[in-house]
């Protein structure tokens, strides 16, 4: 460090040294921004552009204007694949949010100090660490009509067997239940951390005022858990709209395409044996992107207010 001070002292200040504090951030940012723009930002715009073309991924792309979107519109009107995917996305979005109260419930259950509780917390969190592919396989076997654990359990009550993944009315719910398993674990850990930081004095004050149980939770604990709830909300919404792995592993969109969501349908259209319709796939991706964008803008807006508040 002495060496650098010597240089500054002995030489007349170079342009770089004088402007160091203005230039330095850009030098630090350059590699990150370069990577991010090339692989994330630019492709978003490229996809928007591509959605105006018809392209099989190999030959010449043909400009067709908004025809891809028109086709999507007709699929919507005819209650075709696009309609089913969008509807399933909505079901995912709503039901996936159950992970938040469920996670809170388990967190409240485990927020104790009995012997071995730390191990219990880790084991409850466990499903989140496993890849969705394995979760998908595990639940595929769980639902299996011949030997699955589910049918064993309902068999005790004289019910079943039901083939959850083979039934077009049940399949989406079955996959969502599988997705809720790791997602609930995630929300649980967020709330456990949040509960740790709840102000004990406020709790005591609440107790003196006669608040307990649900009232205490609603009026005193939950407001303090707001940051945890916000993050749980963000990751759950994003997770719901990103659902791909489970569907791909458990049903490949079946039976009869009834468990497709936009993320999976796009992949199917653009990159599976059903054909390489890149432009059409891009149009589906644009729709998914626009839905996601509503939430992203909301998240950024919340963050912005937070930043300004400080």
């Amino acid at each position: 460090m002495t060496a650098s001070t010597d240089i500054i002292d002995s030489e007349p200040e170079s342009w770089f040294h004088r402007n160091q504090q203005a230039i330095a951030p850009w030098l630090f940012l350059a590699p990150g921004i370069l990577f991010f723009v090339v692989y994330v930002i630019a492709p978003v715009f490229q996809s928007f552009n591509l959605s105006l073309y018809q392209w099989d991924g190999l030959g010449q792309a043909e400009y067709i204007g908004l025809r891809n979107y028109e086709d999507l519109y007709y699929e919507w009107v005819d209650r075709d694949a696009f309609y089913v995917s969008l509807k399933n996305n909505l079901i995912w979005l709503v039901l996936y949010l159950l992970a938040i109260p469920a996670g809170l419930f388990i967190a409240l259950l485990l927020n104790q100090t009995v012997f071995g509780i730390r191990l219990y917390k880790s084991l409850f969190f466990f499903p989140f660490v496993i890849s969705q592919v394995v979760v998908g396989l595990v639940f595929t076997w769980f639902y299996d009509p011949t030997f699955g654990l589910l049918n064993q359990m309902i068999g005790v009550f004289g019910l079943g067997p039901i083939n959850v993944l083979g039934n077009e009315h049940l399949v989406t719910y079955g996959i969502i239940a599988a997705g809720l398993w790791p997602q609930t674990a995630y929300c649980m850990i967020l709330y456990l951390t949040g509960l740790n930081a709840v102000d004990p004095e406020q709790i005591e004050a609440g107790r003196l005022d006669g608040a307990k149980g649900a009232k205490m939770l609603w009026y005193i604990v939950l407001p303090q858990l707001r940051p945890a709830t916000f993050i749980a909300f963000v990751v759950t919404i994003i997770g719901a709209l990103r659902s791909f792995d489970l569907i791909s592993v458990m049903t490949q969109g079946g039976p009869f395409g009834s468990s497709r969501v936009l993320a999976y349908y796009m992949f199917e259209v653009a990159l599976s044996e059903y054909g390489f319709r890149m432009g059409y796939g891009a149009a589906i991706a644009v729709v998914l992107f626009l839905i996601m964008m509503c939430f992203i803008v909301y998240f950024l807006w919340s963050m912005y207010r937070e930043e300004k508040g400080h």
């Binding site: 990103r242 796009m266 589906i284 996601m292 950024l300």
Partner: peptide
């Protein structure tokens, strides 16, 4: 924002 983008919009490019 980029971190939240759906993978599918990046896929083809």
């Amino acid at each position: 924002a980029g971190n939240f983008v759906p993978f599918q919009i990046l896929m083809v490019p």
